[in-house]
Amino acid sequence: MVKNQSISLKNLSVKYPGSTAPQLKQMTAQADSGQIIGIVGNSRSGKTTLCQVLSGVIPTIISAKVSGTYTLNGHSPVDDWPAYNQLTGVVLQNPAGQLSGLADTVADEIAFDLINQGIQEAVITKRVNQAAMQMGLTAQLTQHPESLSGGQLQRLAIASAIATDPQILILDDPTSEMDPVGRQQFFNWLAGVKATTFIVSNEIDDLCEIADLIWVLQDGHLVAQGTPHQVFNHLSANWQLPAPTSFQLAQKMNWRLPTSDFPVNFQELREAIHATN
């Protein structure tokens, strides 16, 4: 992997004006382009702040004191934000707050980002249909966005974010209102995505299935980073994170991998059972 094509955070700290303690403290982390990075941690650990820094919302839109250096796929979110912004697709926590506010239909809503980029109408229609299909919203294209359920609104926000075919996806808890089937479909889809993806989620099991890396945040500190396997085999009770179901089950059954570690996802679980028997 070419050096400037990767993700690098060095001593990143963020502090809102008027707050006593920084929200992110001296974060240093690396990842490769095209990887899926799962960001976990309990509430107020700084996950949303990290997403806002990675997307450039901090400090471009929300003012805050940012120190340290960070580049994503060779770009800095700070230097030329409008240009950087065109490379990213961002889904915020509250899906209803992300509607453009002037769209009559789901199709118009997905088209919004594309219209803003001045893309030809014929191309827009094609991209809208593709994005809607990927998020299972084809049947809802002519419906009013207000008529959608919370989970559908989240899928709409994701469809809008991916319609522009971004290099970098930043998803802040994008499945919180989805039903189990919808969530499953989403993670299956995410596994095949080519873009560098940062995803905040509490769905530890799903993250272990698809993420290349897990970053654990606690009180603004990056307390662990590594593959799901590494992170959850060295889980600290302080982080207040549940272990993945595969891990818990294997631990109870003492199904170990050949390395004597416990499995964290389905694939590893199968290997462990195989190795034990």
Binding site: I61, L92, Q98, S100, I115, G118, S160
Partner: peptide, 18 residues
């Protein structure tokens, strides 16, 4: 607040908008 952030992320003030 969220809409204000989101509209900017979605590039509503992009000069290329048609």
């Amino acid at each position: 607040m969220e809409r204000s952030i989101s509209l900017q992320l979605r590039g509503f003030n992009n000069p290329k908008r048609r």
